[in-house]
Amino acid sequence: MTKQVTQGHVCIDDLSITFDVRGGSMVALAPTSLELSPGSFTALIGPSGCGKSTLMNAVAGFVPATTGRITIDGAPINGPSDKVGVIFQQYALFPWFTALDNVRFGLKRLKLSKSEELDRARAAIAEVGLEEHAQKYPQELSGGMKQRVAIARTFAFGPQVMLMDEPFGALDAQTRLVMHDLLLRIWEKHKATVLFVTHDVDEALILTDDIQLMSSGPGRIIKHYPLAEPRPRKLNRDNVHLLETRDEIIALLHQSH
């Protein structure tokens, strides 16, 4: 780490989330505590229904806490925060805006002058390698390109915390590898705290500092795997610890199915 990151400290304290359903309530997340240190990269992994997306939506401020609380740098989360950026699996780009205008939309909160806003949006688009596609509409772009625009849009406003909900889940394997490199490069540069929801064990092993393994019924964190291997990583015999971790996680995921 070249730069000391001091912002983007996420504290999840005894958080539980219950949804009202017909004829009662459903515990989506049992009381959970988790601390994300500034600039760290954490994966939430687990079977569907384990509450990983619910936990992320709570940090995003989309879903209110039933009990417990979430703070970022000491400030409680009661709704979408300007410290937090979100990347969605379905990209959530606005089809009526060009790629560039989608990025500019995310910069409105900074209240820049028009030329500053344009410069910054162009720089963000260039950072994800889409200069030539800046004036295209999302529906003219491939899935990987759409997610690049979404990444540019979210990093451009400078969030301290990045939440990514299965961001590469809809992409093919080859595109996914390219996106991993891109994400690591951008993360190294911006140094945000990343919370990354995935169901792909290999993806979590290659990208993150910590894997939090979750289980369902009720949703909760069952195991923590810190990963100290330097990046870029490869899942081969040189990284025995990663391979062992992978076997263990896959075995645990099988059990919970």
């Binding site: 950026g85 009526w96 995310g106 409105k108 909160r109 979210t154 406003f157």
Partner: peptide
């Protein structure tokens, strides 16, 4: 998903109405 995206990007309610909800 559009509303979540626009809220997480922190635009004002007026801008959200005019440039997200109406389109």
């Amino acid at each position: 998903i559009y509303l979540r995206a626009s809220r997480s990007l922190g635009v004002s309610r007026a801008r959200e109405f005019l440039t997200v909800i109406i389109p």
